Amino acid sequence: MAYEVEIKEMPAVRLAGLAHKGPYPSVGPVFQKLVSLIPEPSWAEVEHAAMIGHDNPRKVPAEELRSHACFAVGEGFVIFPPLAEIRYPAGKYAVVTVKGPYEQLPDAYRWLDEDWFPASGMEHRDLVAYEVYLNDPMNTKPEDLLTEIRLPLQG
């Protein structure tokens, strides 16, 4: 399946993330723990949920995959252990919007990495792609979920 890629200039993003090791689809409980760690007054600084998958699931065994369940947060958000601060700089990103269940995301990543990117003529930045959840799976039907995959590019 082919996807549409938009090249976008994106602002810098500051993420507060909670580490996870294991299959990417098993990150749900980590998001629940992340939610429970954020004190009520800090929610004003939370922008959206995101996830970083640090490893390629076609090359790393599922039980060894490293990821972070994250919230994009403002500069006023105090990041405290066990949360990690992860920053993505402003710049050019290849963005793929996936509509539908999260089970479609591995195919979109594979296509972006193996089909689109090699033919694009673009250069990759030294950062892994990350995904941004544009709506809430708690009150959105799986077929209506919207997820952006953001791949950092040079230039």
Rank of each mutant, 00 (worst) to 15 (best):
18 L>Y: 00
20 H>F: 06
21 K>L: 04
23 P>W: 10
23 P>Y: 11
24 Y>A: 03
27 V>D: 00
27 V>T: 09
28 G>N: 11
31 F>D: 03
32 Q>V: 09
33 K>M: 08
33 K>A: 09
35 V>N: 11
36 S>T: 13
36 S>R: 14
36 S>Q: 14
38 I>T: 11
40 E>A: 15
40 E>Y: 12
41 P>Y: 08
41 P>Q: 11
43 W>Y: 15
43 W>M: 10
43 W>S: 08
44 A>P: 01
45 E>W: 07
46 V>Y: 04
47 E>Y: 13
47 E>G: 08
47 E>Q: 15
49 A>R: 02
50 A>E: 02
50 A>G: 10
51 M>N: 00
51 M>F: 05
53 G>E: 03
53 G>Q: 02
55 D>H: 10
56 N>H: 12
58 R>L: 14
60 V>Q: 15
61 P>G: 14
62 A>C: 06
62 A>N: 10
63 E>S: 15
64 E>P: 04
69 A>L: 08
70 C>E: 00
70 C>R: 00
71 F>V: 05
73 V>T: 08
74 G>P: 02
74 G>Q: 11
76 G>C: 10
78 V>L: 14
81 P>K: 05
83 L>A: 07
84 A>G: 06
84 A>R: 09
84 A>V: 11
85 E>H: 06
85 E>D: 12
86 I>T: 09
88 Y>D: 04
88 Y>A: 03
89 P>V: 00
90 A>M: 09
91 G>M: 05
91 G>F: 05
92 K>P: 04
92 K>D: 07
92 K>A: 12
93 Y>L: 03
93 Y>R: 05
93 Y>D: 01
94 A>I: 07
95 V>M: 09
96 V>K: 04
99 K>H: 11
100 G>Y: 04
100 G>P: 02
101 P>F: 02
101 P>C: 10
102 Y>D: 05
103 E>C: 05
103 E>G: 08
106 P>C: 11
106 P>W: 07
108 A>H: 01
112 L>G: 09
112 L>P: 05
114 E>Y: 13
115 D>K: 12
117 F>T: 06
118 P>D: 06
119 A>W: 09
119 A>P: 02
120 S>W: 04
121 G>T: 13
122 M>Q: 14
123 E>I: 01
124 H>S: 14
125 R>I: 00
125 R>D: 10
127 L>W: 08
127 L>I: 01
127 L>A: 10
128 V>D: 01
128 V>T: 11
129 A>N: 05
130 Y>S: 01
130 Y>G: 02
132 V>P: 03
133 Y>M: 11
135 N>V: 06
137 P>S: 07
137 P>F: 05
137 P>T: 12
138 M>T: 15
138 M>Y: 13
139 N>K: 15
140 T>W: 06
140 T>P: 03
141 K>D: 14
141 K>P: 05
142 P>V: 14
142 P>H: 12
143 E>R: 15
144 D>N: 15
145 L>M: 15
146 L>K: 13
146 L>N: 08
147 T>A: 01
147 T>L: 02
147 T>V: 13
